[in-house]
Design a protein around this nucleic acid. Structure first.
Lengths: 249, 249
DNA sequence: TTTAAAACATGATATTTATCAGGTTTTCTA
DNA sequence: TAGAAAACCTGATAAATATCATGTTTTAAA
């Protein structure tokens, strides 16, 4: 058992931290795949790799980022403080995602914070390098344009959900989203650990409300807890709840 | 009096509908200002101008747009249907804004609907033309990239507000936003007409709740109604309310 | 100009959600 | 490994908001 775990660890977390971008598989999942061979070599030379521990901050709202992060492994939550003093999680970012494009393009301090949800391996590419590539490589800038367009579409959907749906609907929606976005672990549970407070910060509610609703879903056998992870037992019910059929359950 | 009105009409609504992009002032407010002389001439030849009456639809959620709109005059509301069957207004678009970039870039049907709030004058530039310019003119594509980045930042802010703020806070926020975004008319009121239902669709609440809160603000002399338009009397109070100081008022 | 429809308004009530207050369990750290 | 801190949980209550019902005013259309 330990042996199996170890082999999985090796697979998703290659210890070769300072590997070159030329050979990096993760790059192929991102807009960076449109860079030319020379551009990749240049990038590889100026990039830095970092290990970020669970709970550590990648960057903080109001501070300059000065580059973009390419996520090689792990997951982080991206959030923003509300004037009410509560944190709102805007998105979850994982392996194969880029992070920080927006601030780089607008040349502004970050409007968001990013905190690791588990141990992460990320590469940081300095601003000048990316700006240079954006200005010279049209395939690359078009790809970034498409990424931003997708983010904007997702943001629009989130606005509507936040404005119109009940807390219960939003929780159901979130669970379904996690189910599709993240892998399933050996126990059949979603392979991401979110605290009850994280859940409340995703759906925009009081922590107690998130706890109560999760308990309710558990009692109704819609979800189950496998340690700190959640397993979806009845996604059909979750879909109905997300669409607003509360009373039928 | 009629004469004065007529002269204002001429100023903001030049009857020369089919004017050339080369001479169009509005183009200078948009990313289209980065196009070369030749590109502008090409665009001018393939663009179409339209008059859109108050209440008319520019495009509908789920349908292809096949180009972008450049707003020469008037205002429209951009909204999306929630699964709950209620409409959520995502943004208000006015003179000098472009509309439809996102769908064009992602090559998808629109995720949003746009409806005129007053009589509008818009130009429509077909997709092929814009895509061509995006691919060849880097200053232009970088500018569109910055536009999308700004939209994304605004969307993030809206998500947080919708998720964390009360309906009263959101209404105060909306009124302040309208005050900064739109001009003031001759009576000192905000020069845009939104129905109570529009307000409820902006802040994401029941129409009755929007009505009640607007009445409350009126009773407390924070706003006043000038016909169908709203005048801000006490923006300091609105700011406090938006930040969550409800009970002090 | 009359009439129908839409928009606006308000009260009563039900539902949803937050807050407060008090617990238990788990996790971290000295 | 003990003790502290964090996370989790539950009940009681208050506050915010939606819903329903009903009436008035304004707008648009015949």
């Amino acid at each position: 058992m330990i042996f199996i775990r170890f082999s999985i660890y090796l697979k998703s977390n290659p210890p070769n931290i300072m590997s070159k971008c030329e050979q990096c598989i993760v790059r192929q999942f991102t807009s960076l795949k449109h860079l030319s061979k020379e551009e990749v070599v240049r990038m590889s030379k100026c990039k830095t790799s970092k290990i970020i521990k669970k709970g550590d901050v990648l960057f903080e709202e109001g501070t300059p980022i000065n580059g973009i992060f390419c996520i090689k492994d792990g997951v982080c939550k991206v959030s923003k403080m509300s004037e009410n003093g509560r944190n709102q999680i805007i998105s979850l970012i994982q392996r194969g995602d880029l992070l920080g494009e927006r601030s780089l393009i607008s040349d502004e301090v970050s409007n968001l914070s990013a905190v690791a949800l588990n141990d992460m391996e990320v590469c940081f590419i300095p601003k000048e390098e990316i700006i240079r590539d954006l200005q010279r490589n049209n395939a690359f800038s078009m790809s970034v344009l498409r990424d931003l367009a997708t983010s904007l579409k997702n943001a629009d959907n989130l606005i509507v959900d936040m404005a119109q749906k009940t807390v219960k609907q939003r929780l159901a929606e979130t669970l379904l989203y996690l189910h599709t976005k993240f892998d399933t672990n050996s126990e059949g549970a979603i392979d991401i650990q979110l605290s009850r407070e994280d859940f409340s910060n995703i759906i925009g509610t009081a922590t107690e409300s998130a706890i109560r609703l999760l308990s309710e879903f558990k009692k109704k056998k819609i979800i189950a807890f496998k340690g700190k992870n959640i397993m979806i037992l009845d996604s059909a019910s979750l879909e109905k709840i997300a669409q607003g059929f509360h009373n039928l359950l």
